[in-house]
Design a protein around this nucleic acid. Structure first.
Lengths: 117, 117
DNA sequence: CGGTATCCCCCAGGATACTG
DNA sequence: CAGTATCCTGGGGGATACCG
């Protein structure tokens, strides 16, 4: 199912372990998938919207902006008509890929092991 | 900040990529940290509550039950008085650790690189 | 100690409509 | 095509109180 992420009411940081920094990036719903698809190479807005089947334009924009502000994703506007925008992983974003791959790998193991969670 | 995870309204699976299985496990708020602390060895309820500073008993119970039902965590009641309960990672849970370590590692890189996200 | 029960807040994110 | 604006909702999860 889709996952949503929220801050808690206090707004404080509960992550008191080494996971904080990276989870702050990977935390948002769709985020890991977004990075996963971008890891295949630059991708345009509408392509990503297709990749992430079911995501709303609003959330895609939100996540992309968030990742852009965190220097994970690069946004490049191509001077075409109609305008097209290309998103790609920054160097930092690329560094997240191994972690995501590790997740994918375990996910696969789980799937193989017992077709169902 | 603390992260909350929610299902979407449709209840459908948006994860249309290899991340689904594992993220379904790691998705919950506190979950990665919980597994992280358990990776150090068996731990009791109150110890975990201390580890995960700020978590409510309710959520800790919820997450532990969820992970137990997903065969990630094992719950063992020790016949002591007062009663104590020991939680530990199952074999499956142990397989999640490398993925989490990968996340930790990237998080550390990020921290080193620019002390702030 | 190791939980469960209740109450309720809150915002991530979906749906829809519109723009340059 | 690539968004932005607005409205709304549901369930995650905090706070608190209580139990065996």
């Amino acid at each position: 199912m889709a996952l949503k992420m929220r801050k808690n009411q206090s707004g404080d940081v509960p992550y008191n372990c080494p996971l904080s920094e990276c989870m702050a990036i990977l935390g948002g719903a769709w985020t890991t998938n977004l990075i996963w698809f971008l890891s295949g190479g630059p991708r345009r807005f509408s392509e990503l919207k297709n990749d992430l089947e079911g995501i709303s334009a609003k959330m895609l924009t939100t996540r992309l902006k968030e990742l852009e502000s965190k220097m994970v994703v690069d946004r490049k506007v191509l001077p075409t008509s109609p305008p097209s925008v290309e998103y790609s992983l920054t160097e930092l974003g690329t560094e997240l890929v191994p972690a995501i791959n590790a997740i994918v790998e375990v996910g696969h193991k789980i799937k193989v092991r017992n077709g169902k969670l």
